[in-house]
Amino acid sequence: MTELPLPVKAAKVNARNVQVYYGQNHAIKDVNIDIPSESVTAFIGPSGCGKSTFLRCLNRMNDTIVGCRVEGRIEIDGEDIYDRRVDPVQLRAKVGMVFQKPNPFPKSIYDNVAYGPKIHGLTRTKAELDEVVEQSLHKAALWNEVKDRLAAPGTGLSGGQQQRLCIARAIATSPEVLLMDEPCSALDPIATAQVEELISELRNQYTVIIVTHSMQQAARVSQRTAMFHMGIVVEEGPTDKMFTNPDDRRTQDYITGRFG
């Protein structure tokens, strides 16, 4: 990273004393973290450390898992997202998500991107919708590759294109926070580079939170990093500091490849 770390902006997400249980299993313990807006925050840590679980708490995707229970307080813009009054459907329009494996719907490219705006009623006319689709594909750096075949099925694209399509789909609902769960783990190096480049651009508009297994990726795209281990946040801070001079022994060991 040649860039200087950005000053910490106002926190977009604040988590306090978050506990997650899967049945009897206590998966996340006492997580406290503040995530600044318009930046990229990376969650790193060994497999099964709870980073994906925590990510899924941020847009209440864990609600769809039977037996999962979340305690503590997670606020976005100062509003507790686990409040009874909050509709997860509305929350997820504000907090978009991109998954590990590209999962385009078996529909056309256009319909994939238009799906979110349609269900949330974000556009009034077809022309507006067309505009949203085009803008989203532009932002996902996919427009030039697919502009001639918007009616072709999304499943026909290459892996990297599919993942960028999923990103386009997520940003079409104009979310404020974008969650990415190991978005490059199923992609080849070239496609990974394209997606990483895209992530760096997205941070100008969105609060991006990315879970990754790759230390290099965290170093390349993020400004802040949180290290998860056995369900707790071991250390959290500016990415540069984490990778050069970590406070915690476990972070040091993980980054230098001694476990994980």
Partner: peptide
Amino acid sequence: FATPRQVFSLFEADVRT
């Protein structure tokens, strides 16, 4: 670009929701 909805407190479900 799709304009974020005007009222955007998560505590208040809009009509559409």
